[in-house]
Amino acid sequence: MVAGILTIALLAAIIVSLGLGAVSLTVRETVSALFDHALKTAHRSIIWDFRLPRILLVALCGAALAIAGTGFQGLFRNPLADPYVVGASGGAALGATLAIIFRFTRPSVPIGIGAFIGSMLAVLVVFTISEFSNFGSIAGLLLAGSAMSAMLTAINSLLLLMNDQVLHGVYAWLLGSFANASWGQLRQAAFLAPPAILMIWLMARSMDALAAGEETAQSLGLNLRRARLLIVIGSSLATAAAVSVSGTVGFVGLIAPHLARSLVGANHKNVIPISMLMGAVLLLAADDLARTIMAPVEMPVGIFTALLGGPFFIYLMKRGERGS
């Protein structure tokens, strides 16, 4: 039921988003440009060459960020975890930057793979630190994550300043933007996202068990080490899928799982698909704002997700305070 409504909402959001832009199209014009092969107008080129890859990429990245957020929240048992908070985005960005800087050396690493490796290493370090911190699990994760993110961002900036020939392009990308979306980028993200989604989906029941704590999960027969590793890999892959094409876009991964839980309950089998749909719709809406609010100048989409997500984060913290 909820899934059906959200799927329709997503399709509607895609159609509306396709119509938005310098040349604005009605829904009817958009649909005919999409499906009428005989039509030979500029509309067809606008839709197929520019807007469609971008819109699909935005939706896919929104879903990927949501799945990463669901995975990280499940792994850390922490409602404040998301790819940004746990350092995965920062790690992915640094990995991607390194891949770009060294793209002419041989052997070179594809950007997506660089992002994946960076993301995974960052998460593993943050996870280890927060496990052994004396601040309790939630505070420990936030502290370790923000320290890690600050450090990764600093290294990233340093690398960019030392390699100023790539500075401009990379910097715009780092802020989080879909301005350079293309079919090529969509292919890249579509290569990383499906295995990530599959892995997190396979871990749905393990994450339910993890909700009861690591000891209980183990007493229920869960192979803790394997479950954790698979969740880290899946979430890192999803983060890399998004970050390698759109830079660091915060808060979608934080918000989407919470909205999903409030709609369909906390069972991960339900949370996973619903949060993906949520993430896609959210990011599409944010990207529409980014494209249109100051048109023809385009804003980084990360600005809008942060404007939405910051207050949400504070709300979650207040709620957690009351609960504990």
């Binding site: 048992r77 922490n78 409602p79 339910d208 993890l210 909700a211 009861a212 704590g213 209980t216 839980r261 309950g265 906390a266 069972n267």
Partner: peptide, 9 residues
Amino acid sequence: REKIAWPLT
């Protein structure tokens, strides 16, 4: 004691 992280039923 145990704390369930999410509002499971």
